[in-house]
Nucleic acid binder design. Structure first.
Lengths: 138, 138
DNA sequence: TATTTCACTTGCATAATGCAAGTGATAATT
DNA sequence: AATTATCACTTGCATTATGCAAGTGAAATA
């Protein structure tokens, strides 16, 4: 890394704002599960995460919406249901999630080796897949 | 994304363990600043992060060590000082940090455009730089 | 010898989280 | 049409984590 790119000045260092949103126990999991598992509803998140408090889930979803990473859409067929969708900004997190999954896979045992292999061996294809999967509805 | 790689089963989804460590307000910042700003000492972190509590910083550093992402080394020239260093596992987080910085840069105003440009235009060179910068001391 | 510096710890008030029990709107069942 | 179930939440409260100020002890510096 060229030394001129290294700076100790705080303002010179990108990341602070995003970490405010991503730097918590649940947000990254929510995004991962929308991206990799196709989660769309409050119920799916709630049933899936052992230990998440229902008020905290509501709060995180609200903040992710406020932050422009996800958005909601009412279900035209069922007035009770709300669909959570990734926005463009949310989909753009795919490379981050990908690298994170690969990092975990490289350093500890992890499930879904097929997915990991795809991510590692053809990252571009995987990312294209995510984008396509969400293209119609961002 | 091929559908067979998508699974709703929890055990099939990598990330949980790592998010336990990375999913908090400070850990990613600490790693970023070691990687991008060359931080090495308790003091540097403490002076830099407005709002971090000294006991929390101590706790995070301890956990990052326990998790194998950083390690400590006594300063041979000064018995008071402790040097914090990234391990191999920590350096391997460079791609994650890189994608995160690029994501932030793409979606909000951010400092150090030179660094962002390097990351975007020659990601491999940037990553090689990080690895080299730390190679002698992991 | 006295004062700083460094890497912390301790104590306590405040804030965030987890958990159980609602609530209100809509949908499905009887 | 009335009752029950589902969905996406909210509310209240106990527990845990965090922030802040003030220490502590070992080692360096004046």
């Amino acid at each position: 890394m060229p030394n001129q790119a290294v700076s100790k000045r705080r303002s010179e260092c990108p990341l602070n704002a995003s970490v405010e949103m991503l730097g918590d126990r649940w947000s990254l999991l929510i995004i991962r599960d929308m991206m990799l598992r196709g989660f769309r509803s409050y119920k799916e998140f709630m049933e899936c995460y052992e230990g998440i408090a229902t008020n905290v889930l509501a709060d995180r979803l609200r903040k992710l919406v406020a932050y422009g990473i996800i958005r909601t859409e009412p279900d035209p067929a069922d007035g009770r249901k709300v669909t959570y969708l990734l926005t463009k900004k949310g989909i753009d997190l795919a490379p981050v999630l990908t690298e994170m999954v690969l990092w975990v896979a490289a350093h500890e045992d992890t499930g879904n080796q097929a997915l990991v292999r795809l991510m590692r061996e053809d990252k571009q294809k995987f990312l294209a897949g995510v984008r396509e999967r969400w293209a119609s509805r961002h």
